[in-house]
Simulated scan of single mutants.
Amino acid sequence: MQLVRDNRLRWELDWNCGACGTVSCDRGSGPAPSELREELLSQHGRHRLRLENSESRGGAILRVFRQVFDSSLAESRESADRLRRHGFEGTLVETELLSELLWQQGVRSSVVPG
């Protein structure tokens, strides 16, 4: 699962071994590992974050992407460009956190399925 704690993405994965019965839990902060993220997208669907005004402040958008995904400036710029052009696709938790943090920066957006 993905969750938000203190305006930061976190992830948790509980699993057990059918052979030995061992139960384990892996946890981390920041973006979920790609394999777990793909499973979340497969199980719960994709969501799209859209800007209400494509002329929104670029610096605020870059800061939010860097904060949420711990990404480089170049990666954040690419995500911000994608958001402006077609919307940013991600998990429900990711897109809702981005929307909330953007709202706090005065940038209005919405989250829609697909």
Rank of each mutant, 00 (worst) to 15 (best):
D81Q: 09
R63D: 13
L101A: 03
A19R: 04
N53A: 12
G21W: 00
S29Y: 14
S72I: 11
V93M: 12
S76P: 12
F69N: 01
E12A: 07
E39H: 09
V64P: 04
P113M: 06
E12W: 01
D6F: 15
I61H: 07
V112T: 13
F65D: 08
D26R: 14
F65W: 14
W15T: 03
F88W: 15
R10D: 05
N53P: 02
S72T: 14
R57M: 08
A60E: 13
S99T: 01
G59V: 08
G58L: 14
C25D: 00
T22A: 07
V111K: 02
H86F: 10
T22H: 05
W15K: 01
D81I: 11
L83T: 09
S34L: 14
N16Y: 15
R66N: 06
R50E: 11
H86P: 01
D14A: 10
L49N: 01
A32H: 02
E55D: 08
E55P: 00
V4F: 02
N53H: 14
S76W: 11
E94Y: 00
E78K: 15
E78S: 15
A19G: 01
L73E: 15
S29I: 15
S29E: 14
R50M: 06
V111G: 02
Q104G: 09
G21K: 03
E75K: 14
